[in-house]
Every structure is written in structure tokens, then in C-alpha cells.
Amino acid sequence: MLTNQTITRRKSRRSFSKIWKEHGAKYLLIMPFAILFIVFTVIPVLASMIISFTSFNMLEAPSFVGFRNYINLIVNDDVFLIAVKNTLFFALITGPISYLMCFVFSWLINELTPKVRAIMTLVFYAPSISGNAYLIWKLIFSSDMYGYANSWLLRLGFITEPILFFDKKEYVFPILILVQLWLSLGVSFLAFVAGLQNVDKTLYEAGSIDGIKNRWQELWYITLPSMRPQLLFGAVMQITASFSVSQLSIELAGFPSVEYSGHTILTHLHDYGFIRYEMGYASAIATILFFTMLFTNIIVQKALRRVGA
């Protein structure tokens, strides 16, 4: 007589074989990516979380210290608190603005002819992949009279001597925000352009019959709901970009920046991970940043799912 456990096992085997027959080819196609994702993303993240509870200098075996790294970060590390404030403020400004910029520019470009649209897409996307982007802004905000900004301001009579842009705290952060916004038309921008191209044109005809009278109503009731996957993807990319500013600050403001005015969580991680080799402490910083980005992504995606609903 068969037991309930045996019957359950047989049913599960049949269901697994049935699923594999129906979707086995799909699983095989995604398997290489899944393996790479697990090996190079999931496992390192989990390892970082474990190491965050240790003291590890890469020369000696890790020693368990419990929550000491996290306590030191929050209680004793004043520079980390400055980095958190800068990062949150930076993300609060550049995240929403860059997201809107990506959508607005893609929406405007979508109205152009195909050839002009392709050229304009390349023009807007080029800064995000330019390897010399930092060099351009270094030339513009150079602290001598030969910098373009100082040269124009001196010529127009607004100043009498060159401004030391990256040596004064009040100038560093606005410049970093400006450059980050200039670099922000990247993958999200391309995703929005592609999403706008794939909106079913018959929906606009049906909408006009149902009472939609202007472009704003078309945008809210047809375009945005049809682009929800691209909107969610763009949100993830822009949030990630706004929280992960490091190289920009190091290249323009130096490391460390004056009075830590351009210091972010990621530059703090760079300091402890790649300069001091305090990997346990650096892993604690990375874990806090990871959960901050995860929490922000969840909130933003829940809000975007209500668009056009």
C-alpha cells in the first residue's frame, strides 16, 4: 500500500518532467546567464555579508567580530555619516531629475524622423560612454584663468580672479551634480526610446474614440502604461547610478575631496577596501549600501506600478 509521502513524490516527479518537456529549452537558454549571475553576483553578495561580521585584512584569516563593524560605522565613523548624507542628497536630486530627463528627451526624440532620431539618440547617449568625459569637465572648471568657466566669467566681468572650483566646498557638490546629470542619459534613455517605438499605434486610435483629447492624456493613459517594463528597468538603472557615484568624485574633486564635500558611500568603500584593505569594514559599508539601494528600488517600483492603473 502506497503511503502519502510516496504518492507526493511521484506527483512531484511527474510535474517536474511535464514542466521540463514544456519549458526545458527555455531553461537551457537561460542557464548560462543564471550560472554566471549566481557565481559572480549572488555568491559575492552573500560572501560580502558574511565577511562584514569579521575583521579581515586579506593577509590573515578572518576573525569574527559580530556587529562591531556596523557599530563603528554608525557611532564612531564621522566621515561615513558625511558620506551617507552626501549620497542620499545626491541620489535625491540626480535620481528623479535624470529619470525625467531620460523620458522627456526620449519622448521628444521619438517624434522625429527615423534618420534624425538615430542621430539625436547617438548625440544624447554619447556622453554616458565617453571615456574622456571627466577630462572635458576638468578643462571647463579648471582653477586657473585658462579654464573655460573662469575665462568666461573673467571676460564678462563677473569675477576679478579665478575661482578655485574644486578647492572650495560650496562649488564641489553642485559641479558633481551637474556632471552626473550630463552623464545620465545612458541605458535608461535607450530603453525608453525602444519602449516608445514599441507602443501599439492602434491604442492611440482606440483612445481617441474613447474620449482622449490631447497628448497629455495619451501620455498618461496609453504611453506610460504600455511602457511599464521599460519604466521599471529605467528606475532600477537610475537609482543604481545615483547611489554608486565614486569615480566621478575621485576624478574631479580628488580623493579625499576638500572637507569631504564630494565623499560618498562608494568612495568610503573604495578607501577601506582598496587602500586600507580592511575588508570586513568595507563589506559592512557595501552591505548597508546594498540594502539602501534595494529598499529604494522596492519603493520606486511599487509607485511606478500604479502609473496609469
Rank of each mutant, 00 (worst) to 15 (best):
M1V: 07
T3D: 09
S12H: 11
R13A: 15
R14Q: 10
S17T: 12
W20M: 04
W20H: 08
K21V: 09
K21F: 14
H23Q: 12
I30W: 01
I30M: 02
M31Y: 07
P32N: 08
I38T: 13
F40C: 12
V42C: 04
P44M: 04
V45W: 14
L46E: 00
A47H: 11
A47S: 12
S48H: 13
I50H: 09
I51S: 06
T54N: 07
T54L: 11
F56P: 00
N57W: 11
L59D: 12
A61Q: 10
S63F: 06
G66Y: 05
G66R: 02
Y70H: 04
V75S: 08
D77R: 00
D77S: 03
I82E: 04
T87K: 15
L88D: 15
A91Y: 00
I93R: 02
G95F: 06
P96R: 00
P96W: 09
P96Y: 01
S98Q: 02
Y99S: 00
L100S: 14
C102I: 08
F103R: 14
V104Q: 09
V104H: 14
W107C: 10
W107M: 11
I109P: 01
N110Y: 07
E111G: 05
A118I: 12
A126C: 15
S130I: 05
N132K: 10
Y134V: 03
Y134N: 01
I136C: 11
I136L: 14
K138M: 05
I140Q: 15
F141L: 04
S143T: 03
D144P: 10
M145K: 05
G147P: 01
G147N: 04
L154M: 06
F158N: 08
E161M: 14
F165S: 00
D167A: 03
F173N: 06
L176M: 08
I177S: 08
L178N: 04
V179K: 15
Q180M: 14
L181A: 13
L183F: 08
L183K: 09
L185G: 12
S188L: 06
S188E: 11
F189G: 04
A191N: 13
F192C: 06
A194Q: 10
L196R: 13
Q197D: 10
V199R: 03
D200S: 12
T202D: 13
Y204P: 01
Y204H: 11
Y204W: 13
S208E: 05
D210Y: 15
Q217F: 07
Q217P: 10
E218S: 10
E218N: 13
Y221D: 01
I222G: 02
I222W: 01
R228Y: 03
R228N: 14
P229W: 04
P229M: 03
Q230Y: 09
L231N: 06
F233K: 03
I239L: 03
A241N: 09
Q247D: 15
L248M: 06
S249W: 15
I250G: 00
A253R: 02
E259I: 03
Y260K: 15
S261K: 13
T264F: 04
L269P: 08
H270G: 03
D271Y: 08
Y272G: 02
G273H: 10
F274L: 15
F274Q: 09
A282F: 01
A284L: 06
I288Q: 00
F291R: 00
T292L: 11
L294V: 09
I298L: 09
K302Q: 10
L304M: 11
R306P: 01
G308V: 05
